[in-house]
Simulated scan of single mutants.
Amino acid sequence: MRVVLQRSGPAAVRVNGEVTGQIDKGYVLLVGITHTDTEQDVAYVAKKIAGLRLWEDEEGKMNRSIDEVDGDILSVSQFTLYGDTKKGRRPSFIEAARPEHAEPLWHYFNRKLEEEGLAVQTGIFGAMMDVELVNDGPVTIIVESKS
């Protein structure tokens, strides 16, 4: 599992012009799942993200977690995170999980984040989405289950 986490101010995801999820501040998560990922991988990444300290304290140090700043999650499925560009000019997505494997794990990931006490908004799995956000910092972190 691979997640690109962006600390964000206001963010929203739209499908066919309709907002399917939005937050005032928190993390925008671009979520990629590979064919070998399991529920254990998903649970590990959800717990890791919930505990990360990426928000500044009074001294300007990244010392506060998302729950300490009343932030929310905007979770967007993103199979292209497993695009391989080593050969040719067109990426290969062979490492991205098939939808029948990835979609249940993405939903499970969102539930695990909620179990960590976080409010989760989402895009729609497999849809063409427009994601807009105000990248705060900018702070962008890659979280992987296999590292």
Results as ranks from 00 to 15, higher is better:
V134N: 13
Y44R: 14
L105P: 13
S65Y: 15
T20D: 12
L81W: 01
D57C: 05
P104L: 09
V3H: 13
L54N: 07
G123D: 06
L105K: 07
G71T: 03
P10D: 14
G21L: 03
A97H: 11
W55C: 02
T85G: 00
L105M: 07
D57L: 06
G32D: 04
D67G: 10
P138M: 10
E115R: 05
I49T: 09
A102E: 12
N63I: 02
A102W: 08
R7H: 06
A97F: 04
V28F: 00
G51D: 11
R64W: 10
Y44W: 11
L30E: 13
R64N: 03
G9W: 04
I94P: 00
V143N: 03
E59V: 00
G137K: 04
E95V: 00
F109K: 09
I49K: 00
M1V: 10
G26K: 07
N63D: 09
F79E: 09
W106K: 01
L52V: 13
G21F: 03
H101E: 12
G21T: 11
R98S: 09
K48W: 07
K86Q: 10
G9I: 05
F93H: 05
D41H: 15
K112S: 08
R111A: 13
F125K: 03
D41F: 11
G123S: 08
K25D: 05
L133D: 10
L118S: 02
D70M: 05
A119Q: 04
Y82F: 14
G126L: 09
L52E: 02
M1H: 09
W55S: 09
K25M: 06
S8L: 00
R111N: 07
N135G: 12
